Amino acid sequence: MASDGVVVEIGKVTGSVGTTVEIPVYFRGVPSKGIANCDFVFRYDPNVLEIIGIDPGDIIVDPNPTKSFDTAIYPDRKIIVFLFAEDSGTGAYAITKDGVFAKIRATVKSSAPGYITFDEVGGFADNDLVEQKVSFIDGGVNVGNATPTKGATPTNTATPTK
């Protein structure tokens, strides 16, 4: 695992066909100046998982989280898009600690492993708008004895992609 920078880890949970599971997305290594904004994309298989919603985690402190935390689910493109932009203008609602960034709610549709993997990152910046190093650890849903650990090695991303 990367020793510096922010680590975004997609949790690994267990479920069975027809059940709804909650998959946490963790941030670790949050910089001392916090995270003022970030955007990134995960990939998944809508034939295996139906993403039914995404909720902000406990490290989102904006009293009205829909102003700073936004997501979009595109089953036709097989992606989930995340956007966080601190909304106070003063840094008061920045992410300042490690913990759960988001909770992905999904219904298991198939007995195949439900991988959720890193696809791309736009950027991560602290309260001074300084770009942060970030790496990703894939996860998803274990169905029966299947284990979604494909790509469990962190993917280092030093520069934003478009």
Rank of each mutant, 00 (worst) to 15 (best):
I73W: 04
I52R: 07
R43S: 05
A152W: 04
T19S: 10
K133A: 05
D98F: 10
D39R: 00
D45V: 05
D76R: 00
G15V: 08
K97H: 10
S32K: 08
D128H: 07
V130R: 14
T66Q: 09
T20C: 11
Q132I: 04
V108H: 11
V25K: 02
D62I: 15
T161E: 15
D62S: 15
G114Q: 05
S88E: 02
Y26S: 12
G11M: 04
G144N: 13
T96L: 08
L83H: 01
N37W: 00
V61A: 11
G122N: 00
E131D: 08
A102G: 09
A94M: 08
D62T: 15
A106I: 08
G11W: 15
L83A: 00
R105I: 03
T66L: 05
T90R: 15
A152F: 10
A152Y: 09
T19M: 04
Y115I: 07
F118L: 06
G53M: 14
K67A: 11
F69V: 04
G122Q: 00
D4S: 04
G122P: 00
A106Y: 13
A36D: 01
K97V: 11
D119P: 01
N142L: 12
K78I: 01
I35Q: 05
G53C: 12
P65Y: 12
L129V: 06
D119W: 02
K150M: 04
V41F: 01
G18M: 08
D70H: 02
Y26Q: 05
K133P: 05
R43C: 04
T19A: 10
F42M: 03
D55I: 06
D76H: 02
I54W: 01
G29S: 08
T90Y: 15
I23D: 02
N156A: 12
V81W: 01
V21W: 04
V6L: 08
Y93N: 10
K12R: 08
K103N: 07
V13R: 09
A94I: 03
K67L: 08
I35R: 00
R77G: 06
V13G: 13
I52T: 10
E86D: 01
I104L: 12
Y93M: 15
V100P: 06
I10D: 13
V81D: 01
G140F: 10
A94Y: 00
G122H: 00
R77W: 15
T96M: 04
P56Q: 07
P113R: 14
T20F: 15
V121G: 13
V8L: 03
F82K: 01
D70Q: 15
S16V: 07
S16I: 11
Y115S: 07
E50L: 06
P148S: 04
D126R: 02
G5I: 15
V6F: 15
A106K: 05
P46Q: 05
N127L: 02
C38Q: 01
V143W: 06
F82P: 00
Y115G: 11
E120I: 02
G34E: 04
G151N: 14
F84Y: 02
F40C: 02
G11E: 09
F82Y: 15
D55M: 15
F124T: 00
Y44S: 06
N37H: 01
A152N: 10
A112Q: 11
A125N: 01
G57S: 10
K162R: 05
V30G: 05
D98P: 08
D87F: 14
I10S: 05
I10L: 07
A94V: 05
I60C: 05
G99R: 13
P46R: 08
I23M: 12
A92P: 03
P31V: 15
G139A: 12
V141L: 13
R43H: 05
P154E: 12
G114L: 07
Y74M: 01
I23H: 13
A72E: 00
I80K: 05
V108C: 12
T96K: 07
F101H: 06
K133Y: 06
K150H: 07
P56Y: 07
G123C: 01
F69M: 03
D55E: 12
I137Q: 13
G122Y: 00
I95W: 01
N156F: 13
F101L: 06
R28W: 14
F118P: 04
F118R: 04
T149H: 13
G91L: 03
D58W: 11
V25H: 07
P56N: 05
L49W: 02
Q132P: 03
K133E: 05
A92K: 08
T71G: 00
D119C: 05
G29L: 05
G123V: 02
F124H: 00
G151S: 11
Q132C: 08
E120R: 01
D55V: 07
G151R: 09
P56A: 04
G57T: 09
G29A: 15
F101W: 15
T153K: 05
V8F: 00
T157G: 12
V7W: 14
F84L: 07
P148C: 08
F101Q: 11
D39P: 00
V143P: 12
S111W: 03
R105H: 13
P113D: 12
V21M: 05
I54R: 12
S3A: 15
N156R: 09
I95H: 03
V41G: 00
K162T: 04
R105N: 13
T90Q: 12
V61D: 04
I59H: 14
V134G: 02
L83I: 00
V61K: 14
I52C: 07
A92M: 14
R43E: 15
I52G: 06
P65N: 12
V25S: 08
A112G: 04
T20Y: 11
G151M: 10
R43A: 09
I35G: 02
P31I: 15
T107P: 12
G15C: 04
A112T: 05
G123L: 00
T117S: 10
C38E: 00
V48H: 04
